[in-house]
Amino acid sequence: MSSEAISADDLVALRDSVADLVARGGGSEAVRASMSSTTRTDAPLWSGLVEVGAAALAIPEEDGGVGAGWGALAAVVEELGASLSPVPLFSSAVLATGALLVAAERGGHGPAGLLADLAAGERTATLCLAGETSWETPGVTADGGILSGTAHYVTDAEAATDLVVVAGPTPHATLHVIAADAPGVEVVPVATMDPTRPLSQVRFTDAAAEAIAAPDDLLARLRDVAWAMLAVEQVGAASAALRLTVDYTKARKQFGRVIGSFQALKHRMADMYADIETGRSVAYAAVEAIGTGEGAELAAAAHVYCSEAFTRVVAEAVQLHGGIGITWEHDIQLYFKRAHSSAQFFGQPVDVVAAVSL
């Protein structure tokens, strides 16, 4: 599960390819249209991402992937974070694939060909983990491979063909794979504050699943992957929020001058930039540490810092946009909602700080 090296030129080309796909796919208009689609995802953009190999980046070559490592996938995650594109990359290529790769390190193998199918985009998976009140306690239990209970805050479940389920009780959680349309499985979409990241409850009623051997530290390892990659996504979104703010302040006039020329506003945007660049350094350090045995502290630091920095940046962005910043018509409100929702993903930063302080 190492983060293999990829050249700087290849990373630039990969970012450019993703940015071009997003732009050609309609950008913000496509994001808004996807919010009300059947699966609440941008299916055409997802197909394009699969064609350029995005879903296969972190999967080893022997399993049908590209084997480029987490660093390459992070570059794609950052670009999609910047556009808020509702595609199942984070749910499938990061969370579900991450769980399968953690298990594979300890000899646990999922259904034959699953990783290869995920890499090729022939199947799409998502992770079922959280209980109603905590990411630390799975909402689903397993008894002899039979799943019962409800997983909450499941991303992109409506678009998934397969569910990768972490079942309790903790600390010895078990890993399972089951088809999303299997008997005893019910996907219940839920309304969300952040319409760009669809969430569902997934209910299991005596559902027969395939068990996968997993290490005792499965939850901790998976959390490190989620926090590191989420931090990269937050950096991408915060960067886009700053760009929107700079563009707006260059166009908006008061007292006969563009407001971006006011020194006080320049200072505030400089502080936003400093938050983002510090966050980028922390986030990519955490990504680089995935699988090295030193990733836990960096991942926790990235989750706390990037969640708080993203929240600060969008709060400033909304203020600097003035009244238009709180209207549905302007995209900055979508970034505000993403900042507050992503800060709760895989545990609140305040809980992480409290745990470290004990």
Rank of each mutant, 00 (worst) to 15 (best):
A8I: 09
L11Q: 10
L11F: 01
R15I: 00
R15A: 05
S17A: 15
V18N: 06
D20E: 15
A23M: 08
A23E: 14
G27D: 13
E29N: 09
A30Q: 07
V31H: 08
R32V: 12
R40S: 15
L49E: 06
A55D: 09
A56Y: 04
A58D: 04
A58R: 01
G64T: 06
V66E: 12
G67V: 03
G69A: 01
W70L: 04
A72V: 06
V77P: 03
E79T: 15
S83E: 08
L84I: 05
A99Y: 00
A99W: 01
G107R: 01
G108K: 04
G108E: 09
H109G: 06
L114V: 10
A116S: 14
A116E: 13
D117F: 01
D117Y: 03
D117Q: 11
A119S: 11
A120S: 14
T126W: 05
E132V: 00
E132P: 00
V140M: 04
S148D: 12
Y153I: 01
V154W: 07
A157I: 06
P169M: 05
H172K: 10
H172M: 02
H176T: 07
H176R: 04
A180H: 04
P183S: 05
G184Y: 04
V187Q: 01
M193T: 13
P195S: 06
R197D: 10
R197Q: 15
R197N: 14
L199H: 08
S200H: 03
V202M: 02
V202L: 00
D206V: 03
A209T: 02
A209H: 01
A211H: 11
A228I: 00
M229T: 12
Q234G: 10
V235K: 07
A237H: 13
S239W: 11
A241F: 02
L242P: 08
T245V: 09
V246M: 09
Y248D: 13
R257W: 13
F262R: 12
H267W: 10
H267A: 15
A270T: 13
A274V: 10
D275N: 02
G279C: 07
R280N: 11
A283Q: 08
E288K: 13
A289H: 01
G293N: 06
E294W: 01
G295N: 01
A299P: 08
A302N: 06
C306W: 03
F310I: 02
V313Y: 03
V314P: 10
E316M: 13
L320E: 10
L320T: 11
L320C: 12
W328M: 13
D331Q: 14
A343Q: 13
F345L: 15
F346H: 08
F346P: 02
Q348H: 15
P349M: 07
A354W: 09
A354T: 13
A354E: 13
A354L: 11
V356F: 08
